[in-house]
Amino acid sequence: MIPTAIPSPASFIMRIDPRARLVVGFVSTLILAVAVQWRAVALGLLLAVGLCAAARIPWGGLRARLIGVNVFLLMLPVVLPWSVPGAPLWSAGGWVYSREGLELAMIIVLKGNAIILLLSALIGTIDAASLAHALEHLRLPRKLVHLLIFTVRYLEVLHEEAQRLYRAARVRGFEAGAARHTYHTLSRLLGMLLVRSVDRSERILAAMKARGYCGRFYLLNHFHWSSRDGMFCVAALVVCMALAWMEWQ
């Protein structure tokens, strides 16, 4: 199974219009991503934790994501301070591990985590189909949205196909190892996947044309903008301005 949105219980976040969540998530992420001040990053992290708690996101799913990101992020406090000039914390053979570098690295680690939590709460709770629809409502190029809708629709189908091919290879005694035979087998397996996906796309196009496809989809899920969504946007705007003020005052 491809892990889609973390299944989360109904919460007030889930009731907010996906368009609002998308825009708020994007803007707040942008501000956090460029922030370099302690206070702004700390406030962002606090808000992100609060939103995750409010969205009642299960800890299990979140933990896996956080581990994945932190494997890379925690490399930074090890490497970065050596190449940032500043007050030395300790030194080895002419190289200086600087205080400023450690501070910069820790800010990056904190905001990396804050953004993951923020996105998990706001956008991670939107299912893929609603996401595509929300994007079309937000006036993204039509072809791009169609590409996204089709990709999302067939991701699971092709994933199952790949697993079927892999199982078939295993039944015939294939065992993956760091050997030439493995690379040979995998390249054929993936080649089969590509060829079958192209064949499938031809059948899809023929079937769609037979049903009168003329280059556009009619969206059925129209979202309903309510006063709650407006209030959420205003609150988010205030918070984003507070973050920006802390960063650039």
Binding site: T151, Y154, V157, H159, A162, Y166, V198, R200
Partner: peptide, 19 residues
């Protein structure tokens, strides 16, 4: 569009394979 999308999905799936 369908062909490009299915190839996108296929490459996405190929990227999930542990080599």
């Amino acid at each position: 569009i369908p062909k490009t999308a299915l190839l996108t999905a296929a490459f996405f799936v190929a990227g999930l394979v542990h080599v």
